[in-house]
Amino acid sequence: MKNTTRYSRQIALAEIGESGQQKLQDARVLVIGAGGLGCPVLQNLAAAGVGSIGIVDGDVVEESNLHRQLLYSLKDCGKGKAITAAEAILELNPDVNVTVFGEFFNKQNAAKIVSDYQIIVDCTDTIAVRYLINDVAVAKNIPVVYASIYKFEGQVSVFNYKNGPSYRCLFPETESLKAVPNCVVSGVLGVLPNTLGRSRRQKCLKSSLKSERFCPAPY
């Protein structure tokens, strides 16, 4: 196990211990979207010692991101989010293996990108991509840790965990009758995605530890 000093406080938890920390080090987590939700998830997974993290995002950092996407600073504007986020979390924890996918998640690349991961964290901001993540995760039998935001409210859940319900079980309609606004349209306070992102980090670590005690609720 790498650098036990760094993780000593969480190893001290009886429910984690050295074996749990080893599971985290062996875990392979794919974070799709490195925006408001993705930033705190990435920061926390790296800090906790999740061994392999994939980052998918084809977007670039903009000034309007900086009030909530705390991995980035003004000097990063115009740079790719995936590579910039990777550099930031490697600075936080150089023991983590990070793979950068500087592209948007789509039907053409979905199956290939997810193939090497045990858990997907959905940090996207469009409904269509959310269904695509769901479908490829179900096909490959990979659990999805999910969160999303509307103004001051958030949704957090784990889907497709041990044959549990999927996102389509919750929202079967594929075509949105009324367009669902994202943060660009509806606005967002920085504290909300950061709170939700950290909540999901908790669910993601529990899934990584694969302990019955940590089994997340399906909804």
């Binding site: 925006g35 959310r130 999303s148 935001i149 509307y150 669902v180 967002v188």
Partner: peptide
Amino acid sequence: FLPPFAGG
């Protein structure tokens, strides 16, 4: 009544 959210 729960709608899907899109924001991320």
